[in-house]
Write a protein that binds this DNA or RNA. Structure first.
Length: 153
DNA sequence: GCCAACGTTGGC
DNA sequence: GCCAACGTTGGC
C-alpha cells in the first residue's frame, strides 16, 4: 500500500468535477510523461491513497484524498484524434499511455495550501516541494502522509 | 505575463 | 550519443 500525490489544474479537472461524477469515481487520463507512466504501471496499486492537489490556480494546495480503485490500463484518449491528449505514436495493440481510476474519499473543509506545506518542516523533502519538480504524480512517504493528515486538525 | 527548470526532439 | 532548440509546467 503506497501513498501518492496527484496534481491537476482545477480549471481543467478539479475536485468538484470528481465529486460530481458517478459514484465519485473517474479515470485519470492525460498522463504523457514516461516517469509518471512507469510509476503508475509498476508501483501504483488498487487500494493506494493519493492526495488530490490543485495547481496553476489562485491558491495551489491539497484539497482532498482519493483512493486508487482500478490499476493501470490503457489511456483511450491517446487513440482519439479529437482529444488534446491524442498521440499517434500510441499503438492500440501496444498502448504507450496508461491511466488509473480514482474515487473521491475525502474532501477537505479547507485547503492545505502550498504555502502551509512549505512552512511545515516535517514536509521538507516532499517531491512536490522540490525545485523544478514536474511530475504530475509523486510518491509520498507514510510519515509525510501522516504530517499532512495532522495539518487538518 | 514572466521565467526557471526540466522533458523531448531531431540534426549531426 | 551529444546537445541545442523548443515546448511545457507551474509558482509567482
Amino acid at each position: 500500500m503506497n501513498y501518492w500525490l496527484m496534481k491537476t489544474e482545477p480549471s481543467v479537472y478539479g475536485i468538484d468535477d470528481l465529486a460530481r461524477s458517478r459514484k465519485k469515481t473517474d479515470h485519470w487520463d492525460g498522463i504523457r510523461n514516461y516517469q509518471v507512466r512507469n510509476m503508475l504501471r509498476d508501483d501504483m496499486q488498487k487500494g493506494d491513497l493519493a492526495l488530490f492537489y490543485h495547481s496553476s490556480c489562485p491558491e495551489p494546495g491539497i484539497v482532498g484524498i482519493v483512493e486508487i480503485v482500478r490499476q493501470a490500463y490503457p489511456d483511450h484518449t491517446a487513440f482519439d484524434p479529437k482529444s488534446k491528449y491524442f498521440d499517434d505514436k500510441s499503438d492500440p495493440n501496444n498502448p504507450r499511455w496508461l491511466m488509473v481510476d480514482v474515487r473521491l474519499k475525502k474532501r477537505f473543509k479547507r485547503i492545505i495550501s502550498l504555502k502551509a506545506m512549505r512552512s511545515n518542516p516535517a514536509l521538507t523533502g516532499m517531491r512536490i516541494l522540490a525545485k523544478g519538480n514536474r511530475l504530475s504524480i509523486t510518491p509520498v512517504s507514510a510519515q509525510q502522509w501522516q504530517s499532512i493528515v495532522d495539518m487538518l486538525a
